[in-house]
Every structure is written in structure tokens, then in C-alpha cells.
């Protein structure tokens, strides 16, 4: 197994009391698998992702990546954030080269790798621009290229398309799916869009309302290139919608 989440739980101190955010979770992710974490807002899906990334410590349990316990963030797990989080003082090219600079690669080699990934996300002509000059969709493409250029085996995505408009969102989903067919990463993808989850995932993991635990897991047995209007697709969508709705309804009670 590529990633093993073993009994991971997390609570936060709120007004002097320990409030649980995540109840013990067990999840195994195989290499090259795309897992979408789905659940009502505040259910702890981002907390789980942040624990795998090494930004947060679990209060119980542990995460193994390639059988070694996670102790902090590292270059083996690339992260793509909802708010893009580009380095505003670097050009597009500079952002994509960031991890390669840390690795000590020569300038020429860095440029070639960065160019290749910028082409892959369709941003070749924009390499010399600064992040302020880009639209939201372009910024997120840079962030994806930056994560890929560092060649991690795992990519963690925290609602990466959540801040984009509906059209851009679908375009980027298609591009991510295309890139995955070339790059074969292990992807953990947090979202609250059921359509997005069904479109991208090999398995969809539905969490309960806060404090989160795993409510249900759906294996999506659809072809690699998916059609959002296929009957099979909509069947998965409505099936998962029913399960998620139970949780959302409970949140509002």
C-alpha cells in the first residue's frame, strides 16, 4: 500500500475543551489510485488531508507512506491548495522551479523540466508572468505544474477547484484526468462536489458530519475517460448524493 491511514483521529482545543474533529479513521490507498474524500463542510476531510501532508499531528493513530511514518511535510507528497498559494514574488517559471532549486538541480535542467510541465498544463506562453497577472484558473494550473515538476509520488489536493467558476472547474477536471493518465500519481483529493468526485475518483470515500468518520466507500467502476452524461455516471452520482444528503440533513437539524 502506498498510503496507510491507521486509526488517525484529531481533536482541537476550543475554549479550553478538547473538541473532536475526526474520529479514528482507517484507509489504505494503493499506488496510482485516485481517492476523493467527500463530506459536508467541517467534517474533517481537510484535517485528514493536512495530517497526511504532515501539516497537522494526529492526536491518535499514524499515517504511513511507503511504510514509513509521516513526521512532517516533505517533497514526496506534493500539495495543491484551494487558494493556489503561489509565491507572488516569483514568475510562473520560478514557481514551477521552486522545488527543483531546493533539490539543487542545474539551471538548464530546471528550465527544461519547468517548461515541460508548463506545456502539460497549457501555460507555455505565460512562463515569464507574475501570479498577479493570472486568472484563478491559470494560477491553479501553475500550482499543479509546480507540484508535478517536483515529481512526488503522491499528490494531495485540498478542494483545488473550489474557488473557480463552474466552466473553468470542468475544464480543469478534464485536464487533471488527462494528466493522471500520463503521470500515474497517487492522489488524495478533497472536494464537496459529488460530480467532481465521480468524475475523477477510483474510489469515493464519504465522511459523516463532524466529527468525521468514514460513512461509506464507493468504488467507481467507470472507464478512464469519463462521460458526465452517461447513465452509469449519473447512477453513481445519485447513489452518492443520497448518502451525502443524510449527513447534510443532520447538520441542519
Amino acid at each position: 500500500m502506498k498510503i496507510r491511514v491507521q486509526g488517525v483521529a484529531r481533536s482541537f482545543r476550543v475554549e479550553g475543551r478538547e473538541a473532536p474533529a475526526l474520529l479514528p479513521i482507517d484507509l489504505d490507498v494503493a499506488a496510482r489510485e485516485v481517492i476523493c474524500l467527500l463530506g459536508p463542510s467541517g467534517c474533517g476531510k481537510s484535517t485528514l488531508l493536512n495530517i497526511v501532508a504532515g501539516f497537522l499531528q494526529p492526536t491518535a493513530g499514524r499515517v504511513l507512506v511507503d511504510d514509513a511514518p509521516v513526521t512532517g511535510p516533505g517533497a514526496d507528497r506534493g500539495v495543491v491548495f484551494q487558494e493556489y498559494v503561489l509565491f507572488p514574488w516569483l514568475t510562473v517559471q520560478g514557481n514551477v522551479e521552486f522545488g527543483l532549486v531546493l533539490k539543487g538541480l542545474a539551471a538548464g535542467e530546471r528550465r527544461d523540466i519547468a517548461r515541460r510541465y508548463l506545456e502539460l498544463v497549457g501555460l507555455g506562453p505565460h512562463a515569464e508572468k507574475y501570479p498577479v497577472q493570472l486568472s484563478g484558473g491559470m494560477k491553479q494550473r501553475v500550482a499543479i505544474a509546480r507540484a508535478l515538476a517536483n515529481s512526488p509520488s503522491i499528490i494531495l489536493m485540498d478542494e483545488p477547484f473550489g474557488a473557480l467558476d463552474a466552466q473553468t472547474r470542468e475544464v480543469l477536471q478534464e485536464e487533471l484526468s488527462r494528466i493522471q493518465r500520463v503521470e500515474h500519481k497517487t492522489i488524495l483529493f478533497v472536494t464537496h462536489s459529488i460530480r467532481e468526485a465521480v468524475y475523477l475518483a477510483d474510489r469515493v470515500v464519504v465522511l459523516t458530519k463532524a466529527p468525521g468518520r468514514i460513512k461509506d466507500v464507493f468504488a467507481i467502476k467507470l472507464p478512464e475517460v469519463r462521460d458526465r452524461f452517461a447513465t452509469e455516471f449519473t447512477r453513481y452520482e445519485s447513489e452518492i448524493t443520497r448518502v451525502v444528503k443524510e449527513e447534510v440533513a443532520q447538520v441542519h437539524q
Binding site: A53, G72, V79, F81, V85, F98, G99, A147, N150
Partner: peptide, 19 residues
Amino acid sequence: MLLRAAASLGAQRVDLIRR
């Protein structure tokens, strides 16, 4: 978040301060 982004790209403490 900038620090998290850099750390997930492999930055150590010195890199974080400098870069």
C-alpha cells in the same frame, strides 16, 4: 500557507527563511 506550500516542495528551515 506559503510556508506549507514550500515545505511540501521539500523546503527545510533554512530554505523557508531564505526563500
